[in-house]
Design a protein around this nucleic acid. Structure first.
Lengths: 298, 298
DNA sequence: AAATCGCTCTTCATTTTTGTAGAACAGCAC
DNA sequence: GTGCTGTTCTACAAAAATGAAGAGCGATTT
């Protein structure tokens, strides 16, 4: 037998009458009309099957039943207040959490953040740099700047920045000593520096194995930046993001071995969790950031 | 700034949609129409200023905000359930608590209780015998059988049983040794046994002092039954309820000194707290008990 | 490829709830 | 006493919420 007590709002009315001692006073406290208050109390008494107030011309006086229910009613009120409080917290602006490779959050990107912060000083950021893939759908971060090796969740809001290209690079010093592979076929004669098993993308690993026997691949780097440093110091050849290597190629530190193979192209995306995208400040930020960020990557 | 969140019932709807994942399923769980569920959610989102669900053709999927509010909503639900539970406890029959002098709950009265219990075995009693005056308005007891020395609260439901009469009695053995006071005027030559200062009724004390100098009044009894026992064993003369002494007079143990003075008459009442009188079983009991109890006192 | 299922939305008539206005009444101050 | 204040009712009109029916839409099954 289910209880018929389904109009929880009547508890508010009950408490107001309890506290003020009259339906008239309660009505002005609640901002509703006096007859409505009286009717809500009638209805409540009816569903509970209890008399809660003694009516007479000088007010509503609580019966013992009413006194005994007061505690429970107040527990309900405080639950309602903390619900509203929590909602109000969620409504307040929170920092925008952005995850990306450290490289994408430094250099020219920082100028974009600075420009944005100058315009919107009230909007704060939280940066989560690193290779770890945060789960945007689970709310671990709001925005991700990522190379989309795997198909992103279709729910995510998605902006394409560029197509990232990868190819082999080696230091000028390395080339002097060992020459350099001018095509994928020649890779097998070189020492290949690569990310560790647990950090390397399956797609890249597969491509590498098609060109080179396993024993030539040195998988000891946990982060791309460590591998890149090793390449720059001439310890071997390594697959690098063309954009990341660009300035080193220009100043002669690095040599680009051959044109980026199509198979290694990957979209560079801005991903936004739909929950975050619902926040005004996040949309404002994305609108500002996306074109400028894309411009960096031509 | 007061929150606009005033329709607490919307939390029920919120939880139902949260649990079932669709407004249609929630509507059948709640026993209301599907469009109503959707409208309640819209309204809730609007007053909270938060998006709670992602709508599409296959249902309502909770956003992160909804997930974060779920705990608070459930706290509210459990408060509502315990409110309903408490109400249901109050609705259940409880024992009828009766307070009276022990003498009024024994003897012929017990027959009335037995007869009533035979007819209504489901109705239980709790007896609170003794001189202590329980506060019926505060809910300390439901029914009192009392001599109304003081004006009872006008809110109390009240039935008159009889006019109790008091006068002086002494044991036959006492009369043999000292004679007995045949009028109030003669009392000053006797030893008067009376209740202690903290137990005696002001009205009686005043009357006694009008007849007798203070030093003749022995106020050492905390209970009427102790004083009566002392009178019966011939230790002095004492004011007793005429009805209580009746059988002892008939069998010659006690002597009624003189006719009961009008000034000591006091109404004997059945008093019922208005809260208790609202309970059906209490009314049933009073209807049965009152005439039979009054019959005992002629 | 078509049919079905389980949803959401929209519309509109109906029902329910609410508010307004005023009568009646007790307590209190003058 | 008389008038004032604070209260509860009642009646009726206005406003709001609700439900029923049906269109539309994906996903899934046949």
């Amino acid at each position: 037998m289910k209880s018929d007590f389904d109009n929880w709002s009547d508890i508010r009315v009950f408490l107001a009458v309890m506290r003020t001692g009259s339906t008239l006073a309660a009505s002005s406290e609640l901002g509703i009309a006096q007859p409505t208050v009286a009717r809500r109390i009638d209805a409540l008494e009816h569903v509970l099957g209890l008399v809660l107030f003694e009516r007479d011309t000088r007010g509503f006086r609580p019966t013992q039943n009413a006194h005994l229910l007061r505690d429970e009613a107040e527990r309900m009120e405080s639950a309602a207040l903390s619900f509203a409080e929590k909602a109000s917290t969620l409504r307040r602006p929170r920092p925008i959490r952005i995850t990306a490779f450290a490289a994408n959050l430094s250099g020219r990107s920082t100028d974009i953040f600075n420009d944005f912060s100058a315009r919107h000083p009230e909007i704060e950021f939280e940066f989560l740099p690193g290779a770890r893939v945060f789960d945007l759908m689970a709310g671990e971060a709001d925005i991700a700047l990522r190379l989309a090796w795997t198909q992103p969740d279709p729910e995510l809001v998605c902006r394409k920045v560029s197509t990232a290209q990868f190819t082999m690079f080696c230091a000028a010093s390395y080339a002097e000593r060992h020459g350099f592979p001018a095509s994928p076929q020649e890779l097998k004669d070189h020492k290949i520096l690569a990310l560790r098993h647990d950090a390397i993308t399956p797609r890249i690993y597969k491509w590498l194995r098609q060109q080179v026997p396993e024993e030539r691949i040195y998988q000891k780097f946990s982060e791309a930046s460590l591998r890149d440093a090793a390449v720059r110091t001439g310890q071997g050849v390594g697959l690098m993001n063309v954009r990341m290597a660009e300035s080193d190629v220009k100043n002669g530190t690095l040599i680009r071995c051959f044109d980026p193979p199509e198979a290694l192209n990957v979209p560079h995306l801005i991903l936004i969790s739909p929950d975050a995208y619902r926040r005004r400040e996040v949309r404002t930020f994305v609108k500002f950031f996306a074109p400028r960020y894309a411009a960096i990557y031509k």
